[in-house]
Nucleic acid binder design. Structure first.
Lengths: 156, 156
DNA sequence: GATCCTATGTATAAGGA
DNA sequence: TTCCTTATACATAGGAT
């Protein structure tokens, strides 16, 4: 039973990893389907395993292509609201990260990771521990993503 | 607080629907990220709302395109294992559905829905109730999907 | 392996601010 | 609105078979 909080890093055990991949992608598809019906949204999900496994796709290959094409054909300006210009957003990211570092101190691990991030930013040195690095990378992605969204909102 | 079990159908209330879309797609992205790191998988998710809203994308537009392209470039035979030839799979589906209808009688609603499905298949008549229809449609999709997978496995 | 089970962790619908 | 909170529903890791 879900005894452990399962760390967010690569699962070494082969069978466990494949099992997780299967279960989680199944649920990913289910959730995508739910969003689609609940909100009348178009959703598509693709998941590739490591080996030569057949990728999971939702809702179907054809629809996925159609949905992605719609995205591709969007005006560049609108796209940038989500993806943002790499260069300019980087500057903003650093500034925003400082605030982010100070905010939300309710959770211990959050604070710890954020501290590591901040430390890495101002001193240029990184933790030697590979696990800390992994956690940091993940957290960073999340933060950048939420920042991107906020920025997108502001620029609207 | 999650008081209700929220029926799996279009949410009429505009703000509730948008809220749900936002929250759920956010989580969809998060989950996709988790699968990616846990299983070293390539995953991408696209979600479009109804209006002219900016679509949510994970992990990024460029990566999504790359991932979908990989799928597009797969040999046709391998793809068919997932999507299957529409015509031939339909015949199999009907046969398989019969078994499915009889199996898994543990859950009341499942049995009910499946009975409705079976009934619809052999008699040609559909329930007049729109909610039953909706539920049936949803269930049917799920069943077809799982059947498709099983068939894919068998044909490997 | 493939299911099924179930204790626990996570997502999220309603509410409140 | 958007951001919290919180009670409940759901997902899922680890076992059992």
């Amino acid at each position: 039973m879900a005894r452990k909080k399962v760390a967010l890093r690569y699962i070494r055990n082969d069978s466990a990893r494949q099992n997780t991949l299967k279960k989680r992608s199944k649920n990913l598809m289910k959730k995508a389907g739910e969003v689609a019906t609940l909100c009348n949204a178009k959703a598509c999900v693709l998941v590739y395993g490591e080996g030569g496994t057949v990728p999971e796709v939702f809702p179907s290959h054809a629809e996925a292509v159609a949905i992605l094409n719609r995205f591709k054909s969007m005006p560049e300006v609108a796209r940038l609201k989500k993806t943002m210009d790499q260069e300019s957003v980087l500057t903003q990211r650093v500034a925003k990260l400082r605030d982010q570092v100070q905010k939300t101190r309710c959770e211990r691990q959050d604070r710890e990771t954020k501290f590591l991030l901040h430390d890495a930013m101002v001193s240029g040195r990184l933790p030697g521990n590979i696990e800390e690095l992994t956690t940091m990378g993940w957290k960073l992605e999340l933060m950048l993503k939420s920042l991107g969204k906020r920025i997108a909102k502001m620029s609207r």
